[in-house]
Each structure stands twice: as C-alpha cells, then as structure tokens.
Amino acid sequence: MTAAVDLRGVTKSFGAHRVLDDVDLELAEGTVTVVLGPSGSGKSTLLRTINHLEKIDRGQVRVNGTLIGYRQVGNRLHELPERDILRQRSRIGFVFQQFNLFPHLTVLENVVEAPVSAQRRKRSEVEVEARTLLERVGLADKAAAYPRQLSGGQQQRVAIARALALQPDVILFDEPTSALDPELVGEVLAVIKELARDGTTLVVVTHEVGFAREVADTVVFLDGGRVVEQGPPEQVIDHPAHERTRAFLDRVL
C-alpha cells in the first residue's frame, strides 16, 4: 500500500539557512501525525512543502503516490504549471494558523467557493454538503454570518469545514490553535479529534503536547530542519531517546 504522505530527502534553504535538511517521512493512510519541535525548527515549512506552498530544493514529496509540484522526466524534476499544482492542492486540505477565511464572503460562501471553482462541482450540491459540514463542526446556525462576526475558535472551525469540503485525501494543520485564546483551544481540538476518529489522514503541527499524546498515532520531533526522532507518543513524549527532545519537552510541559 502506498503511503498517504511520503517525503524523501526533502531539503529546503532560505538563502544560506537550511530550513529542512534531508527529511524522510512516511505517513500511512488514516493515521494522525503530530509534528513537534522548537520554533524555527522547520515544522511549518515541512508542512507547507506537502502541498507545494513552499518549493523544495531537493528531494520529492508524494501524496497517495502522486508526485507533488513536479513531473519526473528521467532523472530530472520539472516544476508543473500552476494550473496542475492548483489541481493537486485541491485534494490536500490546509488549515492555517491565522484561519485566512475570506472576510467578504459569508461562512457558507467560504466553504462552497473551492469545491465549485476548483473542482467544478455543482453549487447546489456543494451547498447541501457544506451545511452538513458546518453542522459537523457545530456551526450550522452561522452559515449566513461573516467571519468577523465569529470568535477565533468558530472561525477556525469554519476553516476546517472549508478544507473538508474539498474531500481531501489528507488535511494539514499549521498550528491551528496558536492564534486562539486559551479557552477557545478546546473546541478546535475537539473537531480535529473527531476527524481523527473518522480515519482522515491528518498532519498537525502544534505545541499542544497533551493533544499529541491523546490523538497522535505518530509523533515526529523536528529540530534544526532534521527529524530527531519519531514514533508513538508513549515513546517520543514519555520516553524520549534524544537529549534535544527531552530538553524541548521539559520546556513545554
């Protein structure tokens, strides 16, 4: 079986600074992976390479066996035209730290936009589905509201519904609770947990170690652009093998 997400030797530099250094990662379908690491360790960049929001310098990224962002010709990788990259992205959900909802569109319009324009599905059909999704994230009554009329937690739940509307193979979460007030974190994590239970493949970059322990199948600890260790949470969080992991967890817990 091909892995849902497969990274091989992914390397990326910003100028002289190497943000990702030869990262290998294989995530099975239906699993939840939590990426932990100090700030500046390359967590977000790693996540953004998976849907080609960030171009890579070397290596390859595959989602469900499909090479992302490039076309292989012999030994060379040619970057795909933007249209093809956009098509690939519409199968990969992405949830941002700052939500990035479209403020001039209602909640329903936010959810409906991409399935209609990117996947060319029928609006009436998508709208019915969108309402079901909004119900699932507990916001059925907010369909006509504008994002600024919602709390941060509600906005992030809309953003999750928006990502789900594309029926993605995998959903990537980039610090989904970091911009939220502490009392709103729980409602967003609850929605993510629910998705995990349904067997959606999730990759979550977060600082919530408790969440990682509870939900993750695999915890990946990243530092200095390298995977320091990975394994089930009991192993990585409770019995870390590396000094750097231990030092980080001591600071966070």
Binding site: L86, S90, F96, N100, L101, F102, A163
Partner: peptide
C-alpha cells in the same frame, strides 16, 4: 490585501 488571502485561495486550489 493580506498575503494570507492569496495563500489560502491557492492552498484551496482555486484557479488563478
């Protein structure tokens, strides 16, 4: 317009 808007639109695969 905030850069995040374009990024979100492009992450959703919305045509250019």
């Amino acid at each position: 317009v905030d850069e995040g808007q374009r990024e979100a639109a492009s992450a959703l695969g919305i045509p250019r």
